[in-house]
Design a protein around this nucleic acid. Structure first.
Lengths: 180, 180
DNA sequence: CTCAAACTGATACCGAGTGTCACGTTAGCC
DNA sequence: GGCTAACGTGACACTCGGTATCAGTTTGAG
């Protein structure tokens, strides 16, 4: 149900533009009521970005699974492979979604917010790797920078219409900031 | 006028909570109409965050003014001094605003967005320093990371109730990512 | 003094999100 | 098989932020 709703919504958004489509439009097209749509998604934006959430835990888990003696930056680089997995698995869909998001301020803002929400989990994971309870300034900075690398890499990948290699882009992004 | 409106709004927000105060409340307290408030700010959030904008150009200008042979990371670190200037000039006010923002999801989101909007100017400045027209992946990443350092530094400064030295926090944040 | 431009406030409107409630369906249980 | 409790659904009313329009007023330049 949720998935079908999201699909109908995405289709409408892409065809008519995100803010030319009301929640009522989506609900009607999907054959449900406005109430139902809002119970499933809570927000118009979430119909597009719901898949984006909960990747946070997977990346954090991957980070925790890295060898303890590995430096933060390398560990983060590898953990980010789990973030780009969905892009590699379904490039066309990922491209379509990314284009819609980039062209819609409201979606961009919400995505930025969701991405930002990953930071605590990553910083915490780094802190645990270091054996400390609370993340240090360095942990927060590195976690944030790693997310930027992901973001910048994906942006360039989208700009190239998926032509460039996302893995190489990520490597390039991470290389721009040598760890210590 | 704008400044007084912002002051009245801020006062109300801090006392009753941002989302317990409607635009009408602010307008009434300031003795103007809702229309006028919205013409000045366009958004409820902007009444608090308007000062935050337009720092982008100053920082970018500072970045361009750095010696051409200086490495990006050092240049960014120095440029960021202009971003924290207002915090050093009026620490109490900056602290009060920062606390309100941190405690209000809507304000946090909007601030994040405004911060994100600095990136193009910084990345472009880095590109010009390098003699290229368009920023490279490395430029984007470094610009973004520098903003994170600023953000993380300020966050910790607020957590310490202004007790810690913001300059040292910034140094520490930048040191967490060695440049190349 | 005049006239144009800018400022203001009133009004109407749209759409997102919240809360509530009644109805129907389903599923467990005796 | 019938009873009931839980849940999904939809209808409705409401609040509030933001947009657009327009008429009245102020202001300032010539």
């Amino acid at each position: 149900m949720r998935a079908e709703l999201a699909l109908v919504a995405f289709d409408l958004f892409r065809r008519k533009g995100f803010d030319k489509v009301t929640i009522d439009d989506v609900a009607e097209a999907a054959g449900v009521s406005r109430s139902t749509f809002l119970r499933y998604f809570g927000t118009k934006e979430d119909a597009v970005l719901s898949a984006f959430e909960s990747k946070s835990e997977r990346v954090a888990a991957a980070l925790r699974a890295r060898p303890a003696d590995e430096d933060d930056w390398t560990a983060l680089r590898h953990a980010m492979d789990h973030a780009i997995a969905s892009y590699a698995d379904a490039p066309d869909e990922a491209l379509a979604v990314a284009r819609l998001v980039r062209g819609t301020p409201a979606l961009r803002a919400r995505q930025l917010e969701k991405m930002h929400a990953w930071r605590p989990a990553l910083a915490q994971a780094l802190a645990e790797r270091a054996g400390t309870g609370t993340p240090s300034v360095a942990h927060w900075v590195r976690a944030s920078a790693a997310l930027d690398c992901f973001s910048v890499g994906v942006d360039h990948w989208v700009d190239s219409d998926g032509g460039l290699d996302l893995i190489e882009l990520l490597d390039e992004a991470f290389a721009a900031l040598a760890p210590r």
